[in-house]
Design a protein around this nucleic acid. Structure first.
Lengths: 164, 164
DNA sequence: TATTGTTATACTCTATAACTATA
DNA sequence: TATAGTTATAGAGTATAACAATA
């Protein structure tokens, strides 16, 4: 009996034996690659001591900053209370500063420090390598088509679904 | 200032303003749709009082059963200890039974009860509707291409990455 | 009264360690 | 010594509620 199972395991796909009843399910097909790229991204960024979410904050400030914590949270779909810890970490590493807003003292204007911009650039290069590793099974054409389909799915997700 | 932000929010995509620095990142593009289909699937199955993971167990047993808890866990990448609670729930709803294995008393052979098969069929229909809702932005061709690309990514994920 | 940021707390999900019974 | 299942526990991640300062 053990032998039977080992035979089934022996030389199938790298992911091991898969239930045929699940192979057609999009939720199944999309979630494991999603988990996989989260893993790869997390490991890739680990040497820089930032998390994938923190990379997202840096990238957002680099392209859109300065922004308030709320603004970033809305863009990246990260809760206000989660943002606090995230920004605390980045501020502690001197990658960004919390500037007072001149007109409305309720919120900050976050912007990257020179060190923050520098680290973001390094992180960006690592992220591209992580993507390359993730996408390795796909041709250039397949990658482009995948990106377009994911973008369509992404942009049709309603905001505030069960929201705050 | 608030006005500026509200303008930026006013009539963009349903997902709201997005950071241009993140729009090209596959991790970003894949994870939100992945989270979205988890949400849809969870809500869709809620009336049947089963979770998406439990649906996975039912589907796996329907197509591959009988199996041990370990077998199912390996196929669906669910930890042994998580399996216990999952199976407890399904057994409590009389959707499956834990039969003793005739040769090796260390493990069970799980198989669906008639009620389990019936509920699985109902759940399957709901799942197809959930997928339809999720995939609505894509044409038939795009859906097929997406499935193929995700399948390739899926099947190239190495087993036991940081594993047990 | 509403909003930004903060803190404390709770909850969900999952994994780790230790145990049992079997092999 | 190894494996299937179980239990208790701990951890990561995130959300909820209440609060302070400000508008």
């Amino acid at each position: 009996m053990l032998k039977t199972r080992n035979e089934a395991r022996s030389e199938s796909s790298p992911s091991g034996p898969l239930p045929s009843g699940m192979m057609g399910r999009y939720e199944f097909l999309i979630n494991r690659p999603a988990q996989r790229i989260r893993e790869i991204t997390g490991k890739t960024l680990a040497p820089l001591k930032i998390s994938p979410k923190q990379y997202g904050v840096l990238a957002t400030l680099d392209s859109e900053g300065p922004l308030s914590q709320r603004d970033i949270g809305e863009m990246l779909k990260i809760d206000r209370t989660t943002m606090v810890t995230l920004i605390d970490g980045l501020e502690g590493m001197s990658l960004l500063v919390r500037d007072d807003h001149p007109k409305d003292r309720r919120y900050y204007l976050l912007h990257l420090t020179p060190a923050g911009k520098k680290l973001y650039k390094e992180a960006h290069i690592l992220i591209l390598k992580a993507e390359e590793e993730f996408l390795r099974p796909l041709s250039k054409n397949e990658r482009q088509t995948l990106r377009e389909s994911l973008s369509k799915l992404f942009s049709h997700i309603p905001r505030l679904e069960g929201g705050h």
